[in-house]
Design a protein around this nucleic acid. Structure first.
Lengths: 337, 337
DNA sequence: ATTGATTTCCAAAACGTTTTGGTATATAAT
DNA sequence: ATTATATACCAAAACGTTTTGGAAATCAAT
């Protein structure tokens, strides 16, 4: 039986009101009383019941994040870093972070969002891995439920988000590859409804054009943002008649899979084949060879998104509601001859 | 303004009670009425307020996990997989999962646990990365708060947990290394208060003894379970007068760092140096060369722990409260000549 | 001495559920 | 015709806070 505010009040012969206000730092309680209350609360191990407070205040002091992944074992360090950022900033703001996972664009996802929104389970949610025509954005907007997003989408209205200019990043990468003498550059892509795919693929096409290279359909292999997917796509590309001399993965995991495919084919990455990824996860420093990548500050973005979200839930103005970041090109041995 | 149960009741000219009981499936409401209620609730977008329900029921239907890591950017896939398991099983049981991070064995950690326990924020918690003399175990036990743990500790009382027999795993690994002709086997260890360190290090010493090898202090390098830590420790060991021919990392991340140290020193892993890790994270399949490791079923353990915890919170008996698993030795190229 | 301000406290309402302990009506058994 | 039993419903209490709108006591100003 945990101690309630009533216990503390009785102990001190004060009213519940006074105890509550003392602890909340209101100015209408005498300093001496406040000290007594604080001490008693401490001694009795009192902490306000979260659910009671939530019910009364009509807010949960909790934000939610629903990982959009299909496999139960999500193995993408991107999410770890993103969640770490969310969690740390949430703690810093004295918020709780509620996490679950739901397969993207399926009934199950809808159910979770509805439960959280209608059950007033969280004050706001963070979205990531945006899709073109994203129903989540529509739904939350229509329910006028606070949310922020990592990534853009083609919604007809504005919403608070941080985007990363993948296209410009990939263009820079291609310029670098061309500089290294590459003419045959392939791309291992992701599911076509993902905003990041559309964005990065656009960069791929633009980058080729800028370098005066022609776009070849056969140099595009569709994959799924996983290591295994990258491996298979890499195998396929390397088995072509005249294979590419450089391969860009839609993310780092894909690129790591490609590295493995090259190794198994006896191809030396760096000298014979250039490989690059996107995200800048920690692993890329430790692969063989270390991987060239376009780094996006996932952790910091996550923290910033939480700050934007709290502004939203507090009905404050978000100072910069549409951020667009340029990823940083980190050149490592995997694209150096 | 979200719909409440009162709105639904008014709409149907029923009492709040009846609506509540209809939705909860009690038998004292006519089937026809129940259907009307269900339909109206659906149409009006009603979902019970979680906080109101929690307050009344005196339970949160939420379990908590506090990641014991110091760096804000935790980069250990172990945690991703663990959290994925917790999250999936929680969803399956219609529970929420609350997550945060706190540096192990520090005041901040204490504060978070106290907030959750005293504020009745969660129904129970899951512990991992246990320490000898773990204050969390003592505290939760004394507060008689439901918890389960991944890992053992030296508490004087019993508690529900799943342990992994690291010692026996490392012994098997050493036998394998000896079979490959290794006589000089080093160990890169973790913080000495971690149960996993004590356990695995014991296996290291026992394994050497069983093989008739002598234990040499200089072959032990202390590290911190990260890639960078493993890299530094690996560098140090490889710079010794007569360096080891095999190095065991306390976990996979450490081993991955060692791989990199070897590569930089121009040492060919497999033929010249054997390297092995512990955990069996996905990365190990994709390193160069693929890494020998002792795999523990982290994801499944996490799911099972949640099931054990719900048994505990429901005051049911846990059918098997003390599990001890043997890790599986997966031999890959990093320990084959 | 009266009035006005200020300080310090509090009773009661409200938040939205679930649960307890019924009551009224219809049906079945005597 | 009475009594017992089921069936279908409901009013009110309770969960533990925060907030509203005072009230009493003290102090300052006239």
């Amino acid at each position: 039986m945990p101690t309630t505010i009533r216990d503390v009040a009785k102990q001190l012969n004060l009213s519940i009101t006074t105890v509550s206000r003392a602890l909340d730092g209101y100015s209408d309680v005498a300093e001496e009383t406040r000290q007594r209350v604080i001490q008693a609360a401490e001694e009795m191990g009192y902490a306000p019941s979260r659910s009671a407070r939530q019910l009364r205040r009509q807010r949960t002091d909790t934000i939610g994040y629903i990982m959009p992944t299909s496999q139960p074992r999500f193995a993408d360090p991107f999410f770890s870093e993103f969640i770490a950022g969310l969690g740390d900033e949430a703690s810093a703001q004295n918020l709780d972070l509620l996490i679950t996972r739901a397969p993207p664009d399926q009934e199950a996802e809808r159910v979770v969002y509805q439960r959280w929104v209608q059950g007033r389970r969280v004050d706001g949610v963070v979205l990531s891995r945006m899709r073109q025509d994203d129903w989540r954005v529509r739904y939350l907007h229509e329910s006028s439920f606070p949310f922020v997003a990592f990534g853009r989408t083609n919604a007809s209205f504005e919403f608070t988000h941080i985007g990363v200019d993948g296209a410009s990043g990939i263009r820079r990468l291609i310029a670098h590859l061309v500089e290294q003498g590459h003419q045959h550059i392939a791309f291992v892509s992701a599911a076509s409804d993902l905003s990041l795919q559309i964005d990065r693929f656009k960069g791929y096409q633009e980058g080729l054009a800028e370098a005066g290279l022609i776009f070849e359909e056969r140099f595009v292999a569709e994959s799924n943002l996983t290591r295994d997917g990258g491996y298979l796509a890499g195998k396929k590309l390397l088995a072509l008649q005249s294979p590419p001399t450089a391969i860009i993965g839609a993310n780092d995991l894909t690129a790591i899979g490609i590295l493995r495919a090259a190794r198994e084919s006896g191809i030396s990455v760096g000298s014979d084949l250039a490989v690059a990824g996107f995200d800048g996860i920690d692993d890329t420093e430790h692969t063989a060879p270390p991987l060239t990548t376009l780094k996006q500050p996932v952790y910091d973005c996550a923290r910033r998104l939480v700050r934007m979200l709290t502004a939203l839930t507090n009905n404050e103005a978000v100072e910069e509601p549409h951020v667009l970041l340029i990823p940083e090109l980190i050149i490592r041995d995997s694209t150096l001859r």
